[in-house]
Amino acid sequence: MMELIFALAVGVLTASGVWLLLRPRTFQVIIGLSLLSYAVNLFIFGMGRLRIGAPPVLENVEAVDPALYADPLPQALVLTAIVISFAMTALFLVVLLASRGLTGTDHVDGREDAR
């Protein structure tokens, strides 16, 4: 059950992210990228296998059964990925605003479609 909900969440986030990424407004693109990065972070987390109530940090170094513990590495990777994608989103936001200011439109091409 947990796996199903998790997979659905990743799927819905990815689908919405991709759709928004392909939209013509820069704001939609940035929201799409954010949603995609959430989906990717969840996916990385899921790659360490989903476990409930298992601590990721070993408590005493003597003989312990690793099966009782969650994999700490994906959690560390997710932290790194969150920080990086957060920073990149902020930077993208700045460029987006600069583009809006310079071209006077929020279209990704810097000009409105001819209609």
Binding site: S37, T89, V108, G110
Partner: peptide
């Protein structure tokens, strides 16, 4: 540059994901 940069950043963020 800003216009090219916008596309460049978007495509590279996607590639990173």
């Amino acid at each position: 540059r800003v216009r090219a940069g916008l596309a460049y950043i978007a495509i590279n963020l996607t590639a990173s994901l």
